[in-house]
Amino acid sequence: TTEYTFTDDEEARRAIEELKKRGLTFRYEKHGTTWRVRVD
């Protein structure tokens, strides 16, 4: 499991789109302004 942290909404959304394109399994949660994206 790899975890990424983003504080920029645009950056987080781009990363999420990219992961979807690659067909990877991931989860994300947003805490205030911080996004945590975990890739299995």
Rank of each mutant, 00 (worst) to 15 (best):
residue 1 T to C: 15
residue 1 T to I: 14
residue 1 T to M: 12
residue 1 T to F: 15
residue 2 T to A: 08
residue 2 T to W: 14
residue 2 T to K: 10
residue 2 T to P: 04
residue 3 E to F: 14
residue 3 E to K: 03
residue 3 E to T: 13
residue 3 E to W: 15
residue 4 Y to G: 00
residue 4 Y to I: 06
residue 4 Y to F: 10
residue 4 Y to A: 02
residue 4 Y to S: 02
residue 4 Y to Q: 03
residue 4 Y to N: 02
residue 4 Y to M: 08
residue 5 T to K: 05
residue 5 T to R: 07
residue 5 T to F: 14
residue 5 T to G: 02
residue 5 T to W: 14
residue 6 F to D: 00
residue 6 F to Q: 00
residue 6 F to H: 01
residue 6 F to L: 02
residue 6 F to T: 02
residue 7 T to F: 13
residue 7 T to K: 07
residue 7 T to A: 07
residue 7 T to I: 07
residue 8 D to K: 05
residue 8 D to P: 02
residue 8 D to Y: 03
residue 8 D to L: 04
residue 8 D to N: 14
residue 8 D to E: 05
residue 8 D to S: 14
residue 8 D to Q: 04
residue 9 D to R: 09
residue 9 D to W: 15
residue 9 D to P: 13
residue 9 D to A: 12
residue 9 D to Q: 08
residue 9 D to I: 11
residue 10 E to T: 11
residue 10 E to P: 03
residue 10 E to W: 09
residue 10 E to Q: 09
residue 10 E to D: 12
residue 10 E to S: 09
residue 11 E to P: 03
residue 11 E to W: 06
residue 11 E to R: 06
residue 11 E to V: 09
residue 12 A to Y: 07
residue 12 A to D: 01
residue 12 A to N: 01
residue 13 R to T: 08
residue 13 R to G: 05
residue 13 R to M: 14
residue 13 R to E: 08
residue 14 R to Y: 07
residue 14 R to A: 11
residue 14 R to S: 08
residue 15 A to S: 04
residue 15 A to T: 09
residue 15 A to V: 13
residue 16 I to L: 07
residue 16 I to E: 01
residue 17 E to G: 07
residue 17 E to P: 01
residue 17 E to L: 12
residue 17 E to N: 10
residue 17 E to S: 10
residue 17 E to D: 10
residue 18 E to Q: 10
residue 18 E to I: 12
residue 18 E to S: 10
residue 19 L to G: 01
residue 19 L to P: 00
residue 19 L to Y: 06
residue 19 L to F: 14
residue 19 L to M: 07
residue 21 K to R: 13
residue 21 K to W: 05
residue 21 K to C: 12
residue 21 K to H: 06
residue 21 K to S: 09
residue 21 K to G: 06
residue 22 R to T: 06
residue 22 R to N: 07
residue 22 R to H: 07
residue 22 R to I: 06
residue 22 R to G: 05
residue 23 G to L: 03
residue 23 G to D: 03
residue 24 L to A: 10
residue 24 L to S: 04
residue 24 L to K: 06
residue 24 L to M: 09
residue 24 L to Y: 12
residue 24 L to V: 12
residue 25 T to E: 06
residue 26 F to M: 04
residue 26 F to P: 05
residue 26 F to Q: 00
residue 26 F to V: 15
residue 26 F to D: 01
residue 26 F to T: 03
residue 27 R to W: 15
residue 27 R to P: 00
residue 27 R to D: 07
residue 27 R to F: 13
residue 28 Y to L: 12
residue 28 Y to E: 03
residue 28 Y to H: 03
residue 28 Y to V: 15
residue 28 Y to D: 02
residue 28 Y to P: 01
residue 28 Y to K: 03
residue 28 Y to W: 12
residue 28 Y to R: 02
residue 29 E to N: 05
residue 29 E to Y: 14
residue 30 K to G: 01
residue 30 K to Q: 06
residue 30 K to L: 06
residue 30 K to T: 04
residue 30 K to D: 01
residue 30 K to V: 08
residue 31 H to N: 12
residue 31 H to A: 08
residue 31 H to D: 13
residue 31 H to W: 09
residue 32 G to N: 04
residue 32 G to A: 04
residue 32 G to M: 03
residue 33 T to I: 09
residue 33 T to G: 14
residue 33 T to R: 08
residue 33 T to H: 10
residue 33 T to S: 12
residue 33 T to E: 12
residue 33 T to M: 09
residue 33 T to V: 07
residue 34 T to H: 07
residue 34 T to K: 06
residue 34 T to C: 14
residue 34 T to D: 04
residue 34 T to N: 06
residue 35 W to T: 06
residue 35 W to G: 01
residue 35 W to Q: 02
residue 35 W to M: 04
residue 35 W to A: 02
residue 35 W to E: 01
residue 35 W to D: 01
residue 35 W to V: 06
residue 36 R to P: 00
residue 36 R to N: 05
residue 36 R to F: 15
residue 36 R to M: 11
residue 36 R to C: 14
residue 36 R to E: 05
residue 37 V to N: 00
residue 37 V to F: 09
residue 37 V to P: 02
residue 37 V to A: 00
residue 37 V to E: 01
residue 38 R to M: 15
residue 38 R to S: 14
residue 39 V to I: 11
residue 39 V to W: 04
residue 39 V to Y: 03
residue 39 V to R: 00
residue 39 V to M: 04
residue 40 D to C: 15
residue 40 D to K: 09
residue 40 D to H: 12
residue 40 D to M: 14
residue 40 D to Q: 12
